[in-house]
Measured scan of single mutants.
Amino acid sequence: MTEYKLVVVGAGGVGKSALTIQLIQNHFVDEYDPTIEDSYRKQVVIDGETCLLDILDTAGQEEYSAMRDQYMRTGEGFLCVFAINNTKSFEDIHHYREQIKRVKDSEDVPMVLVGNKCDLPSRTVDTKQAQDLARSYGIPFIETSAKTRQGVDDAFYTLVREIRKHKEKMSKDGKKKKKKSKTKCVIM
């Protein structure tokens, strides 16, 4: 069974824990209790493949930012979460993405942009803004509501699919490099 290491990042209060708990335990946590770091595991079937999701729910508070490099190193894919009623959390996505790329030393890291709290009427981040940002990053965008469960499975499952595509691409690139290195030079 394939294991996928997913990391949920975003500013404090955007609903990272609520999304994760909704996926794992099928219930909505409405009281806000700032996370330092929590880890969850769940076995699911995605596109006919049974897999184990190892999900790291991270601290959004700035005082825990020193811990970010460590979990970013171990993560295979990242859910970059903002709240649709919090423009600052949307603007912060850029910083999370840049930090992930720096730590992973790669421009090509599996990510999904997630606009959470889409059940709320007080939207300050337009869907088109988020779609445009995701398009500019070359990553999928999904709106979710941890409260109603809308888009929750889709967000995590899409990230797994992005990781699969990335692994497939990397193995193809690896095979191309191996083929090239088999060419021999004969000096007579």
Score class of each variant (00 low, 15 high):
Tyr4Leu: 12
Leu52Gly: 13
Tyr40Lys: 00
Gln22His: 04
Asp30Gly: 05
Lys5Leu: 01
Val9Asn: 04
Ala66Arg: 12
Lys177Thr: 13
Arg164Leu: 12
Asp69Ser: 12
Leu113Arg: 03
Cys118Arg: 10
Arg135Phe: 05
Val29Ser: 02
Gly77Ile: 09
Thr124Ala: 09
Leu23Ile: 08
Glu63His: 02
Ala130Gln: 13
Ile84Val: 11
Pro110Tyr: 02
Thr127Asn: 07
Gly12Arg: 02
Tyr40His: 00
Lys169Arg: 06
Asp154Thr: 06
Thr50Met: 12
Leu159Met: 08
Lys88Arg: 12
Leu23Gln: 14
Asp57Asn: 00
Cys80Arg: 01
Ser122Gly: 11
Asp119Leu: 10
Val45Pro: 13
Glu63Pro: 02
Val114Arg: 02
Ala66Met: 14
Lys101Phe: 06
Leu23Pro: 00
Ile24Tyr: 15
Thr58Ile: 00
Phe82Glu: 04
Gly151Ser: 13
Gln43His: 08
Thr35Asn: 00
Lys147Arg: 08
Leu120Pro: 15
Thr124Glu: 10
Asp173Gly: 12
Pro121Asn: 12
Val109Gln: 08
Leu6Tyr: 04
Arg68Phe: 02
Ile46Thr: 13
Arg97Gly: 08
Gly10Trp: 03
Lys117Ile: 14
Leu113Phe: 12
Ile36Ala: 00
Thr50Arg: 12
Glu62Val: 03
Phe141Gly: 08
Met111Arg: 02
Pro110Asp: 02
Lys42Pro: 03
Gly13Ala: 12
Lys167Asp: 07
Gly15Ile: 02
Ile187Glu: 12
Ile84Arg: 12
Ser65Gly: 05
Glu76Trp: 10
Ala18Cys: 11
Leu53Lys: 03
Gly77Asn: 01
Ala66Tyr: 11
Gln43Phe: 10
Val8Glu: 03
Glu37Met: 15
Lys88Glu: 08
Gln43Gly: 11
Glu107Gln: 05
Val103Gln: 04
Lys175Ile: 06
Leu23Glu: 15
Leu133Trp: 13
Ser89Phe: 08
Tyr32Ser: 01
Asn26Met: 07
Lys165Trp: 05
Ile84Met: 13
Ala59Met: 00
Gly115Asp: 05
Ala83Thr: 11
Val109Gly: 03
Leu159Cys: 05
Gly60His: 00
Val112Lys: 02
Cys118Val: 10
Ser65Asp: 03
His27Gly: 12
Gly15Phe: 15
Val114Glu: 01
Asp38Thr: 00
Lys88Ser: 15
Val112Asn: 01
Gln61Pro: 03
Asp153Ala: 08
Lys176Ser: 09
Tyr71Phe: 05
Val8Ile: 05
Met111Trp: 09
His27Tyr: 15
Met111Tyr: 10
Thr127Ala: 06
Ala83Met: 10
Lys177Met: 09
Tyr96His: 07
Lys180Gly: 05
Gly13Val: 12
Val125His: 12
Phe28Leu: 01
Phe28Gly: 00
Leu120Val: 12
Thr127Ser: 07
Leu79His: 02
Lys182Ser: 06
Asp105Trp: 03
Val160Tyr: 11
Val152Glu: 11
Tyr157Met: 05
Lys5Ile: 01
Thr127Glu: 07
Gln25Trp: 13
Asp108His: 03
Val45Thr: 12
Arg135Asn: 09
Gln22Tyr: 02
Ser65Trp: 09
Glu91Val: 04
Val152Ala: 11
Gly151Ile: 08
Gln22Phe: 03
Gln99Val: 09
Asp119Pro: 02
Val160Leu: 09
Ala83Ile: 04
Gly13Trp: 14
Glu63Ala: 03
Gln70Tyr: 12
Arg123His: 09
Glu37Pro: 05
Ala130Cys: 12
Lys147Met: 06
Val81Asp: 02
Val186Gly: 09
Glu143Asp: 08
Ala155Val: 07
Val160Cys: 14
Met111Val: 08
Arg97Lys: 05
Val152Lys: 15
Asp54Val: 08
Thr50Asp: 13
Asp119Gln: 06
Glu62Gln: 06
Arg97Leu: 15
Ile21Phe: 02
Ala59Ser: 13
Lys16Gln: 01
Asp33Glu: 01
Lys177Trp: 05
Arg73Ser: 08
Lys5Thr: 12
His166Thr: 11
Lys104Gly: 13
Lys178His: 13
Val152Tyr: 10
Gly15Ala: 08
Asp105Pro: 05
Leu23Val: 09
Glu162Gly: 09
Gly115His: 12
Val8Cys: 06
Glu168Gly: 10
Met111Gly: 01
Leu19Pro: 01
Leu52Arg: 14
Ala155Tyr: 07
Ser106Pro: 06
Ile187Phe: 09
Tyr71Cys: 14
Lys117Tyr: 15
Lys117Asn: 14
Lys104Pro: 15
Val186Pro: 15
Thr35Met: 01
Met72Cys: 03
Pro121Leu: 07
Ala134Ile: 15
Lys88Asn: 13
Asp153Ile: 07
Gln131Thr: 10
Gly151Lys: 11
Asp105Arg: 04
Lys128His: 07
Glu162His: 06
Asp47Thr: 10
Gly48His: 11
Ser65Val: 07
Glu162Trp: 05
Arg97Tyr: 11
Ser106Leu: 08
Ile100Asn: 03
Tyr71Ala: 14
Ser181Val: 08
Gly174Ile: 03
Gly115Phe: 09
Val186Arg: 07
Cys51Asp: 11
Asp154Lys: 06
Arg161Gly: 06
Thr2Lys: 11
Asn116Cys: 14
Thr74Ser: 09
His27Arg: 03
Gly12Thr: 10
Glu107Cys: 10
Ile36Glu: 00
His27Cys: 15
Glu31Ser: 02
Gly75Leu: 02
Gln150Val: 02
Arg161Cys: 13
Glu31Trp: 12
Thr2Trp: 11
Tyr64Val: 01
Arg123Phe: 06
Val103Trp: 14
Arg41Leu: 08
Arg68Ile: 01
Leu159Trp: 03
Glu98Met: 08
Gly115Met: 12
Val160Phe: 09
Phe156His: 10
Val160Ser: 11
Asp154Leu: 07
Tyr32Phe: 01
Val45Cys: 08
Ser136Leu: 11
Gln43Arg: 12
Arg102Glu: 03
Ala155Arg: 02
His166Trp: 07
Val8Ser: 04
Thr58Asn: 00
Val9Tyr: 03
Arg97Asp: 15
Asp173Ala: 12
Asp54Lys: 14
Tyr137Pro: 15
Val112Trp: 05
Val81Ile: 05
Gly12Tyr: 11
Lys180Met: 06
Gly48Trp: 06
Ile84Pro: 15
Pro121Gln: 11
Phe28Asn: 00
Glu3Asp: 12
Glu98Asp: 07
Lys88Gly: 08
Ser106Val: 12
Lys175Cys: 08
Gly15Ser: 14
Asp30Ile: 04
Lys167Phe: 07
Lys117Thr: 14
Thr124Gly: 10
Ile24Thr: 02
Lys165Asn: 08
Leu6Thr: 14
Thr50Cys: 09
Asp38Pro: 05
Lys176Val: 14
Lys128Pro: 07
Val109Ile: 09
Lys176Ile: 10
Val81Gln: 09
Met67Gln: 03
Lys5Trp: 01
Val125Trp: 10
Phe156Trp: 11
Tyr157Pro: 10
Lys179Met: 08
Lys167Asn: 07
Leu79Val: 05
Ser65Gln: 11
Lys128Ser: 07
Glu3His: 14
Glu62Met: 03
Tyr32Cys: 01
Asp69Val: 03
Asp132Arg: 05
Leu52Pro: 14
